[in-house]
Nucleic acid binder design. Structure first.
Lengths: 210, 210
DNA sequence: TAGATTGTTAATCGATTAACAATC
DNA sequence: TAGATTGTTAATCGATTAACAATC
């Protein structure tokens, strides 16, 4: 499995290149990408070289080519349908989040255990959790998002795995363990914030009064 | 600066220990923590040893002690007030997210550039962006969350830095560059999901029909 | 050609893992 | 005591960085 940090960087290079393209840039140097993403230029060249993304000595990289080649590596494919389980605060926000669509990601349906939240008529239907298994099978869904409370997460996780889900983005504040059958990306919002607080505090200790 | 992955693991050990405490566990072995967090037991012991968190040879670690010692290291302090800029989908969800409070994190106010979103009477006030600088100063805020659209992110970032914000959790899909004066944690929701899709796809290639 | 940037190799750095002596 | 687990040291592994030859 390729190093996760490297894959994330590749996505970032692509994002920057897309912005540059929108600004009508034709070429870009490793140094520019490095600055935009916050790494060294050597890292950019190394990353590119590992994925055989090549530029032009002296002339840098062609912006279009960079986008195209990274998309090839990362597999910009056809529309990816995903499901979401847990129609609470975060779930609702993600359902309405406009950023996914442009990358070919479509939340096809949401599921919740609370009958009051079910809404089959909605643009993106909200269905009873009990229907998830069938839905996943009928629509060949592979990816799911978990936005349920922590006490429900493990159970929902098992349910999704047995339904055939192969990859999960988990926002419940618990570490779901990934396995051969299912990849997991745990995002703990509290921890993301707490770790910043930690760094701000400790940094100040080292440098009193900046 | 301490390795970020290590700090995140420490938070995870603490979270697990808290759950164990709720279940009336008295002791825990490095092996148990390792399983819960998805690392090796050697890693747990190494992490603990680096922060002088000690257990009992033969008897493992005392759950209470682990929590207390990790909290000491990570600085479970008094209530941390943070602000949020961008009262859209994600911003609204975070404002209502119940998980922060229990870790002593309180979103004190939200800010938005759209006058229609301003609501001074709300439990957590939503204020005009123009008032952010004063608010931050008057309330000694150090931490901010960015949930504005990508095109606004850089500008809001500069504004927050000049207001005196020292740490930022950024959900806008752009890499804000951290500096001496301000720590940044960039979370790109699209990329988090896209990288899972990438891994699911490539894993399947290697193991067809697993 | 001279100058600048890539692509790659080798060196460095740091994190993880293994192993085992210490010890409860 | 015998057995089991920590705590730490040394070995391994992998990722980043430096440096520079290739070359546009």
């Amino acid at each position: 499995m390729q190093n996760r940090a490297r894959i994330v960087r590749l996505f970032r290079y692509r994002n920057v290149a897309r912005k540059l393209k929108a600004l009508r840039y034709i070429r870009v140097f490793s140094e520019n990408l490095a600055d935009a993403v916050g790494v060294t230029s050597a890292q950019v060249r190394k990353d590119f070289s590992l994925f055989s993304i090549s530029g032009n000595r002296r002339g840098g990289y062609n912006v279009e080519e960079v986008i195209k080649q990274i998309e090839m590596v990362l597999g910009k494919g056809k529309l990816q349908k995903v499901i979401l389980v847990g129609f609470g605060n975060i779930g609702r926000a993600l359902l309405r989040y406009p950023g996914f669509e442009k990358d070919g990601i479509k939340i096809a349906a949401a599921f919740d255990i609370d009958p009051a939240k079910v809404n089959r008529e909605s643009h993106i239907p909200v269905l009873p959790l009990s229907e998830m298994g069938n839905y996943v099978e009928n629509n060949s869904i592979q990816i799911g998002i978990i936005t349920v409370p922590d006490y429900a997460a493990q159970q929902v996780f098992e349910l999704m795995k047995s339904a055939g889900i192969k990859g999960i983005l988990n926002f419940a504040p618990i570490c779901l363990q990934e396995s051969e059958e299912c990849i997991v990306n745990n995002i703990n919002l509290e921890t993301e914030l707490e770790s910043i607080i930690y760094y701000v505090k400790t940094r100040k200790k080292r440098k009193p009064k900046q």
